[in-house]
Design a protein around this nucleic acid. Structure first.
Ligand code: MN
Ligand code: MN
Ligand code: ZN
Ligand code: ZN
Lengths: 215, 215
DNA sequence: ACCTAACTGATAACTATTACTAAATCAAGC
DNA sequence: GCTTGATTTAGTAATAGTTATCAGTTAGGT
């Protein structure tokens, strides 16, 4: 029998193709769950693996800790924005000879290559030029900015009151919230650009964050 | 005060430079521990991070799940052997223009690039040509082949008796060994090429494996 | 309709890395 | 040389992402 056709597999492939992006398993899970609320994250992983084995999609090893998946399987390269971490396609012409994906390099029989560029995407370049003001509008990089919950506001406020970088437990102490919960909130706020981490383990409120709690 | 000079840091840097390889934190930990048995893995991680921040070494993001570190910091690229996973340097001439590490690509301001080739190293090419026979000699890729322990032999034998791919608990049942221990043994044997995994979760003995238990 | 290998959701386990803590250590200033 | 305090350490817990396991479900060939 080998490979079966299941509704889970179909939706996973369909949604990855529809997105036209380079999604992580987790991101795709969140998308697929809207259509199929009882699907498991393990199923998403299992099928992404299987689909890439059969060549319908491509596993993408880009920098960062999360693997991404690509519905575009013909050979191309990628560029990662160092600020918003968006991954986009790069099609380089006339590079095949100079930067070969097959052939021999230093005695190795080359079967493939991976080329990844790092830089600032046009959106982030533009955003960095905006001196101040409508920071709450977001970075324009597709990361939809949601309303802040009361707890998120509490965390941000505590961070604003705290002068200098602080660790999660400082915020837990200041807000009275559970430390574990605070860690999660900080991660969310960091994704939204309201918090950054100047040093590992230490967090601080950003200009965007200050604007957000003022409004 | 900022950065201090500690014996741990010195040895870590020294051993990475001496190795002239692209070691993982764990590999380096094992090397360093020979000179400083009480050092902690966390210390190795911390110092590799710090040394790469100060520019004395380079963090290397190659494929595979483990990060590697490079004592060679001047710009160069890498080639990974798909069989033995060895990482070696590649210095490509005349590529800087065609395959730029700075400049503009599709509107992005490029700050860097990563180029990684995949292929078979000369050692593995040679090994693959050997038709049969001295498979127990190893792949010659530096992964020293050790003697098999009695438990490892038990696992291999059980796998040989078991026709077709089996899961870890099949082996546990057949050998009477603890399932957890069996999982570990299988992982080891797989690294040594005596076991492979045709399907996820399922394992089978390889030709090399059969030779190993005959001897 | 029946059968069974393939698949699923749920959850545990695993691996690589990072965070935390109390104790130890380095080096600047006396 | 001694004091002092910021850094660093060993040990360990916690985390994130992924993979393994398992009991029950389903696709699809007969
Ligand atoms: Mn792509
Ligand atoms: Mn190198
Ligand atoms: Zn961006
Ligand atoms: Zn090799």
């Amino acid at each position: 029998m080998s490979v079966r056709r299941t509704s889970q597999r179909e939706i996973i492939l369909q949604e990855l193709q529809k997105s036209r992006q380079h999604l992580t398993a987790d991101q795709l899970f969140r998308v697929v769950r809207k259509k199929m609320p009882r699907i498991s994250l393990a199923t998403v992983y299992r099928n992404l693996e299987l689909l890439s084995e059969t060549g319908l999609i491509a596993k993408l090893e880009v920098s960062g800790r999360q693997r991404r998946f690509d519905s575009e399987v013909v050979g191309h390269d990628h560029v990662t924005c160092v600020q918003c971490h968006r991954v986009e396609n790069v099609f380089l012409e006339g590079m095949k000879e100079d930067c070969p994906s097959h052939g021999v390099v230093d005695g190795y029989t080359i079967k493939g290559r991976r080329l990844e560029f790092f830089g600032l995407c046009p959106r982030c370049q533009k955003k960095n030029k905006v001196p101040k003001g409508d920071a709450t509008m977001g970075c324009g990089c597709g990361c939809a900015k949601k309303m802040l919950t009361d707890e998120q506001k509490m965390v941000l406020q505590a961070m604003a009151d705290f002068h200098g970088p602080c660790v999660a437990k400082d915020i837990a102490a200041a807000t009275g919230l559970e430390a574990k919960l605070v860690t999660g909130k900080i991660a969310d706020l960091k994704k939204q650009g309201f918090v950054d981490s100047p040093v590992r383990c230490k967090y601080g409120i950003t200009a965007d964050g200050r604007t957000a709690i003022k409004g």
